Computed example of a mutant assay.
Amino acid sequence: MIFHQFFEVESSTYTYLLASEQTREAVLIDPVASEIDIYTQYLEMHNLTLVYSLDTHVHADHVTAANLLRDKFGCKTVLHRNSGVNCGDIFITDQSVIRIGEINIEARYTPGHTNACTSYVAEGMVFTGDALLIDGCGRTDFQEGNAEILYDSIHTQIFTLPDETIVYPGHDYKGRLVSTVGHERLHNSRLGAGKSKAEFVEIMNNLNLPYPKKIDIALPANKACGQ
C-alpha cells in the first residue's frame, strides 16, 4: 500500500492518501481545496489514479476539495447519507466498504461531532476525522453536536478496535502526527482511563471554546462539495 499524510497549516487539517500498489488506484480522505496542487503533484509523481474523495464529515473549519478533485480527475465524492449534502456521488452507511485494488476501506459511523461523522478503517489504521483526536475529540457545541452520542460512537466504533490500530486524526494543533487506539483508550484526557459518559459530558459542556472562525464560509461551501 502507498500511504501519505498531508498537512494544511491554516486549519491544522490532515489529509490522507491511500493507494494500491497493484492497480495504482488512490483515495484522498478529507482533502482541502487550497491544497489541490500539492495532491495533484503527488498523484502524478507516483503515477496514481484518484478514484475516490472521502470526507469524514461536513467540515466547519476548511473548504473541501471534493468538487475540485471531481472536476479535475473524475473521481467519485463519498459522504455519509446523513450529511445533508446533495452533490455527492456515493452515500455510505455504517460498515460500507470502499475498495481500491487489494485495499478495503471500511466505514464506521461515528456521529456526535456532527450527524455525518464517519471514521474509516483500513490496513490496521483508523482515520477518525474530528470524532477522536490525539488526546481529545471533536467539539459538540454546534452543528448537530451531541456529547452523549459522541461518547457512544468512540467507545463502540473506535475503542473496540485492536490496541495497536494506528489512529490518524483529522486535525492536530500541537504537531503530533499519530497515536494508537490503545493509547487513546488509556490516556485521552477527555475519554481515557475509563471515564464515564457523565464525566465526559461534563468536560464537553465546560470547554468554553470560541466560535469557529471559518464556519460561515466553510459550511455553505461544503454542503455544495466545496463549490
Rank of each mutant, 00 (worst) to 15 (best):
N104V: 10
Y173A: 09
R139E: 14
I154Y: 02
Y120F: 15
L161T: 12
T114Q: 11
T156P: 08
V121R: 03
M125S: 02
P111D: 03
V126M: 14
G101S: 12
L161N: 13
E148G: 03
L161S: 14
I154T: 05
A116W: 06
S153K: 06
N146K: 01
S153D: 08
I154R: 01
R139V: 04
Q143V: 10
F159H: 04
T160A: 14
H155N: 12
N146M: 07
P111F: 00
I134K: 03
E123A: 15
I149P: 09
L132W: 07
E144R: 13
F127C: 08
V178G: 11
D135T: 04
V126T: 14
T165A: 11
D172G: 10
F142W: 03
A107C: 11
T110H: 05
I166C: 09
N146G: 03
Q143K: 06
I158P: 08
T118G: 10
E123C: 14
G101L: 08
Y151I: 08
I103K: 03
F159C: 08
G170F: 10
Y120P: 02
E123G: 13
V121F: 03
M125I: 04
V167S: 03
L177R: 14
H155A: 07
P111Q: 05
I103P: 01
Y120N: 00
T110F: 06
G136Q: 11
A131D: 02
V126G: 00
V126I: 15
A131C: 07
T118L: 04
D163N: 15
T128Q: 06
G145I: 09
T165D: 00
Y173W: 12
L150Y: 06
P169E: 08
I103C: 09
L177H: 15
M125W: 02
C137D: 02
T128F: 04
T118W: 05
G101I: 05
Y151C: 06
V121D: 06
F127Q: 05
I103W: 06
T128W: 00
D135I: 04
